[in-house]
Design a binder for these strands. Structure first.
Lengths: 119, 119
DNA sequence: TCCTCATATAAAAAGATGCTCATATACTAG
DNA sequence: CTAGTATATGAGCATCTTTTTATATGAGGA
């Protein structure tokens, strides 16, 4: 019921970024070198490196050097399922601020109109 | 496999905040008026209102006015399960940047020392 | 050893977010 | 209608995050 706030917050903060999600999407299909990640995401090298570091330091990714290349992979494959679950939920979210301004229903007014008293 | 980036990103961004998570934690136990939320979170009124708006506009919360009070509740109770799943994952994350600086293993050097060649 | 490739790090610039303070709106009681 | 309570909104700052630009490090080959 009371989950560990700090941990979850960090998790959401780390994943709450477009570029990092795209990187994860690429790595979801398996281990990749940085060069491959650059190709597939079209991110500038230095920016990708920045985000990879964040993911790595959060423990989401694992890095290993082999020769001149550094290979990244998901630390836990189970992250993919979690992402899918989140995506599923996220896509059901209906955005209630459809119009330019959200307006509170004029409760008191309506009650008067309908001859009702507050309960 | 390829989840809807934009939706998930927004979801993570909205949940990636300490105060918002605390609000959700309170609402996890059921519907609450703003006053009650203020009591339980000890947030300044205006700040709580700010975060409530973000959660509401994201579709995570639902608000309804009854008399002078406005009651908030989770739009989808299933969010709680999702949060728990995320918490579970988040808590397993081992932070690899233990020391002040992370150092890449000196692969080439090690190979030379061990008389190996790159493959 | 020197050069080049692959990748990381640091510092500065640009952008986004969260917080506070002041004020507005909706409702109810008198 | 007036005053008081409940809650929302808006402007300005401070802070944190992302992006860019410049530079460093480590590996392999000539």
């Amino acid at each position: 019921m009371a989950f560990s706030l700090a941990a979850v917050e960090r998790f959401f903060k780390v994943l709450g970024d477009d570029n990092r999600l795209r990187i994860l999407q690429v790595l979801g299909t398996g281990e990749r070198s940085v060069s491959e990640i650059l190709d597939q995401t079209r991110l500038p090298q230095t920016l990708a490196s920045f985000h990879l570091r964040i993911l790595r330091e959060a423990g989401v990714l694992t890095a290993e050097r082999r020769g001149p290349f550094i290979y990244y992979r998901l630390a836990e494959r189970s992250l993919l399922n979690l992402l899918e679950a989140c995506a599923k939920y996220a896509e059901t979210l209906t955005d209630p601020k459809a119009g330019p301004e959200f307006h509170w229903p004029p409760w008191g007014q309506m009650c008067r109109m309908m001859g009702q008293r507050r309960r």
